[in-house]
Design a protein around this nucleic acid. Structure first.
Length: 497
RNA sequence: GGCUCCAUCGUCUAUCGGUUAGGACGCGACCCUUUCAAGGUCGAGAGACGGGUUCGAUUCCCGUUGGAGCUACCA
């Protein structure tokens, strides 16, 4: 793991400016950026932007077993893709263990914490025994607190010890940004370990030490952290630091009502990126999961989200991740995104699909944009745009068997109509939709058939499918030469059929 | 089990004690129409239950039930 940054010495932020909030997103790099994390990041980011503060990123990589550089990179990429850029340098928690250690020992010196020489294995054993008896294991301070003499002798014998925080009597409460007041009786909080016997810090210690050092003014995170909060508040106080404000946003659940996890399918932000989602759709959708602008607005850009964001709209209830609505949301954004922006996003996909090179597309930008206009409105994912674009790019079309059997059922009749269509279109002075439509409608009239009887077989000839954008748009964007050639080829196909 | 949080249509949500409980997704119907979308109109669809407080509760309080999270020398 790379540690590029360390932060200033711990202790008292004291003068954290209320006007300049400092928030952070603190994922542990043990996997990809998941949607729940992305939403927490978004709310923090929104809060920072809304109130002109800073949004910081801290990688909580103190669990060396599970943390990977690959995950760290994935988190960066995910946030960058979403456009949730962070202020200041990234803080790697692992770079701060010396301070965490020092803070834990400071607590030991002030008497806010004490040494526990009980081996971890012994604790495990006691826990297992209690469970076997059907009881709940309660950590007993009296059993492990030693006299000064005993401590001195164990120290002299070099016995390893963990440092535990001595939870005081009373109650620990705070006014949560989204829940109002939350209170925990201290008797329900065990004396928790802050420094392991190997000298490494435990989560709550590291978090508090870092949040103090980073001068965080608001800790906004998932409500699965609610039970950590009283412990952290106790640490702030014992360390003599002002506690920040806390806000606990609800979880995201899968369709089964359980906390979202891998078994619910795609939960990584990257999964959606690769499925053809626009970052603004993801952001918009995530924002609406657990937050509401208070009115009926649904489709919003990031800038609009910043403008409308307010903590009052934060929800207390867990929300179910509904991919159907996500896709609808993407369709909305697909329809309203500036066409050049869409083109830039989608061009590499066309290249990968082998339909055109990026250079080719930019050389024919106007044409390409026109094609995208036709396709965007009937797509929900950018993938679908690419999938449906084929006939605009290829030289020849493949006939879908269903289309042939349905719309070219009577081969002779179809060939006749297509031939007549070909001749009418070929005689046109201008390759222009209105003229084409007029010509073909008059043709239909003279043949005594409905327009559809011409348009549908024509669609198969031009697109090979029963579905396509409007037929005159297809004619226009496939182009005169290719269109006429395709119609002629269809006539041949039908005659030989 | 203990602690904590939560509770309006299937889902996301609006409602600052007085509404025919509104909108969106999804679903159904219709309109538009050369197909598919998009769009438009309409429809079905909700205050978990029981007590209070109040002239009046979805809204405030309590309880029940239900759901979720945490419960490590993980983060």
């Amino acid at each position: 793991m790379v540690h590029m940054t360390s932060v200033a010495p711990a202790v008292a932020p004291g003068s954290a400016s209320a006007k300049q909030p400092r928030v952070r997103f603190a994922p542990s790099p043990t996997g990809f950026l998941h949607v729940g994390g992305a939403r927490t990041a978004l709310f923090n980011w929104l809060f920072a932007k809304k109130f002109g503060g800073q949004f910081l990123l801290r990688i909580e990589d103190t669990d060396r077993q599970r943390s990977t550089d690959e995950s760290t990179r994935a988190i960066f990429e995910g946030l960058e893709w979403l456009g949730l850029t962070w202020d200041e340098e990234v803080v790697y928690q692992g770079a701060n263990v010396a301070r965490h250690y020092a803070d834990a020992h400071r607590l030991l010196e002030t008497g806010a914490a004490y040494r526990d020489f009980t081996p971890a294995a012994e604790l495990d054993r006691l826990r297992a025994e209690a469970e076997a008896r059907g009881e709940v294991f309660r950590f007993d301070r009296a059993r492990v607190m030693l006299s000064e003499a005993e401590v001195a002798s164990k120290l002299a014998a070099n016995e390893p010890f963990a440092i535990r925080f001595k939870v005081p009597e009373g109650e620990t409460a705070w006014d949560d940004l989204v829940h109002e007041r939350i209170a925990f009786p201290n008797k329900d909080i065990e004396d928790f370990v802050i420094l392991r016997s190997d000298g490494t810090p435990v989560y709550n210690m590291a978090v508090v030490s870092d949040d103090i050092a980073m001068r965080i003014t608001l800790v906004m995170r998932g409500d699965d952290h609610i039970s950590n909060t009283p412990k952290q508040i106790l640490l702030y106080r014992a360390l003599g630091a002002d506690e920040p404000q806390f806000g606990h946003v609800p979880m995201i659940h899968g369709a089964d009502g359980k906390k979202l996890s891998k078994r619910h399918g795609a939960t990584a932000v990257g999964d959606y990126q690769h499925q053809g989602l626009l970052p603004q759709s993801m952001l918009n959708f995530l924002a609406l999961l657990g937050w509401s602008p208070g009115d009926d607005t649904e489709v919003m850009t990031l800038a609009e989200l910043v403008e409308k964001f307010h903590v009052r709209g934060l929800q207390k209830k867990a929300a179910v991740f509904d991919t159907k609505k996500l896709e609808w949301m993407n369709g909305q954004h697909l329809a309203q995104i500036p066409i050049a922006e869409l083109a830039a996003i989608v061009a590499p996909m066309f290249e990968r699909a082998g339909l055109a090179t990026a250079a080719d597309l930019s050389a024919r930008a106007e044409w390409f944009h026109g094609v995208l206009e036709l396709l965007r409105v009937r797509a929900r994912l950018t993938d679908e745009i690419v999938a449906q674009a084929g006939p605009f790019f290829t030289d020849t079309v493949e006939y879908d068997p269903d289309a042939v059997s349905k719309l070219w059922r009577d081969a002779n009749a179809a060939a006749g109509i297509l031939q007549a269509t070909h001749d009418r279109l070929a005689s046109l002075d201008a390759w222009e939709p209105a003229a084409m439509e007029e010509a073909l409608r008059t043709l239909a009239e003279s043949l005594g058939i409905s327009g559809g009887k011409i348009f549908q077989p024509l669609r198969v000839a031009l697109f090979g499918l029963t579905v396509s954008p409007g037929i005159f748009d297809v004619l226009l964007y496939v182009g005169r030469d290719r269109s006429l050639a395709r119609i002629a080829a269809a006539v041949q196909f039908l005659k030989n059929g």
